[in-house]
Amino acid sequence: MKRSVLIYQSIALITLAVAFILFWSFSKGTPFVESGLTFDETAADSYSVLQENLYRMVPILLGSIFFSIAIAFYLEEWLAETSWIYGIIAQQITILASIPSLLYGLLGLYFFVLQSEKGSFFTHALTFVLLVMPITIQSTQKAIRGVDISVREAAFALGANRWRVVVDHVFPNAFPTIVAGICTAISRVLAITALIIIVYIWKEHTLQSGDTFNIPSSVIVLLSFALLSSVISSFLEKKTNLT
């Protein structure tokens, strides 16, 4: 009950925020919504470099999600029962995942904006991976632990080895929760990306031309996707809680 109230509240807040940004950008004129992703002749070059880098982040994002899932399964299914290292690793991941995304945003800001001439693709990728992986690993771990012990016992007692238990039973049962966790991670990334773009454009644009600041369409698109994915994630969580 309390939890669903929280979810609705956060959805309402995000919706309000997006509505406000949309209203603001439309009422101030919509040069960026019309002109697509670039907004200014002067900043176009460096902005498109940033844009290109962002597109290159997509495979990084997908890759880190894939690796996060693999790592979570390795930790929970193989390492947890056999090694003391498990406790240490799990703790580190919890710490990383509990760092507010704003700090990652500042880290990204540093690499993307202040270091944009020097900042390499590698440093950009690192920021993304740092942001996405701990939270995805942690939510996948929770999903795996959420699979009822009776399912494992039944499969093991029938002679299934660990691989079969994981592939045939644990993964399918944990899947909706895993996807919900990924959606949460992605909405975090998108929100941070939007923040970085805003600050970047603010730096490039207002410092150079002194004009008033407008929100580019890409930010609106990003925030809309962030909203969508958080809605999907809360929907999936609800659905898995029912069964």
């Binding site: 009776s150 399912v151 016992e153 039944a154 007692a157 029938l158 002679g159």
Partner: peptide, 14 residues
């Protein structure tokens, strides 16, 4: 485990 089957306290069909 093939030779020795097990039935649990709580029915646990997969």
């Amino acid at each position: 485990r093939k030779t020795v089957g097990m039935v649990f306290q709580r029915p646990n069909p997969l």
